[in-house]
């Protein structure tokens, strides 16, 4: 009897491992090929600016909303606990440190992976299956220089920039909850917040964001470029781009944190 259609855990684990390795290899190759195209960066200036505006406008509204509520939840959760020992004023420390080191970059990256990484995979995937990429190649236009490079540069810039916003807005959100729910006054909250932050917290967070942004664009483009089999293939590429980006963000987050602290 043919049982290949049934769920086979060993086979699926094997498929996941080979798939991951293949994907990793392709991403690495794409990274190297993009790096080789550095000379064409000045030619791609306009498209890069265009991509920056797309990424920033796409990510901004969602990032702000998520950031406000992350800050508020952080403040509320920790505040209720700390109030038992009369330490609720300390939430400034906690919110600021958590936002800048962890929550800011990771939340922003998650939002951008869902919004922008998926868009990139869908857009490039559609171009792949409708022969637009082939057309570029026949015209001796390198798709990596034309499509991938501007997106990588844009995301490497937009992700840290949005992270700054997310951090600021998150800390403000925490402050509002502190004031309204826990009755911590603003100046005290911000003094604690300021004291908690070292320069290292801020730049390590932004560096993480830069790596995440780069990674999201790389994964999105690489999935798009490998799309096959029409619309269904594009859908699959989009889904994979988001899943792979989310997982890689977590993994890289761990190692980057380990590197910095």
């Amino acid at each position: 009897m043919n049982t290949s259609h049934l769920f086979n855990p060993f086979k699926s684990v094997r498929l996941i491992i080979t798939g991951t390795l293949e994907s990793l290899g392709y991403n690495l190759l794409l990274l190297i090929q993009s790096a080789r195209q550095y000379r064409s960066i000045p030619n791609r200036f306009r498209e890069t600016v265009n991509q920056i505006s797309i990424c920033a406008r796409g990510g901004f509204p969602v990032a702000i909303i998520v950031a406000i509520f992350s800050g508020m939840v952080l403040a509320l959760q920790s505040g209720i606990e700390m109030a038992r020992w009369g330490q609720e004023a300390q939430i400034g420390t906690l919110v600021a440190a958590t936002m800048c080191r962890e929550m800011g970059p990771v939340m922003t990256a998650y939002i951008l992976a869902g919004l922008i990484g998926s868009t990139m995979a869908a857009e490039i995937g559609t171009m792949k299956v409708s022969e637009e990429i082939d057309a570029l190649e026949v015209m001796s236009i390198d798709p990596i220089s034309y499509l991938v490079l501007p997106r990588l540069l844009a995301m490497a810039l937009v992700c840290p920039l949005l992270t700054v916003y997310t951090n600021v807005v998150g800390i403000l959100g925490g402050g509002v909850v502190g004031k309204l729910v826990l009755n911590v006054n603003f100046s005290l909250y911000f003094r604690y917040a300021q004291e908690a932050l070292t320069l290292k917290d801020i730049y390590s967070g932004l560096f993480k964001a830069l790596i995440f942004g780069f990674m999201i664009a790389l994964v999105g483009c690489s999935q798009g470029l490998r799309a096959e089999n029409g619309a269904a293939g594009v859908g699959k590429a989009t889904m994979k781009a988001v899943v792979i980006a989310l997982i890689s963000i977590l993994i890289f987050d761990y190692f980057l944190t380990w590197l910095f602290y």
């Binding site: 171009m127 022969e131 637009e132 057309a135 190649e137 026949v138 015209m139 001796s140 236009i141």
Partner: peptide
Amino acid sequence: RKKFGFLFQSGALLNSLNIENNIALP
């Protein structure tokens, strides 16, 4: 490839560019 012009069966125009930019692209 510089020697070639290729009319694809599907057309394969770049959907993000208008007609002028498509034609002038190469």
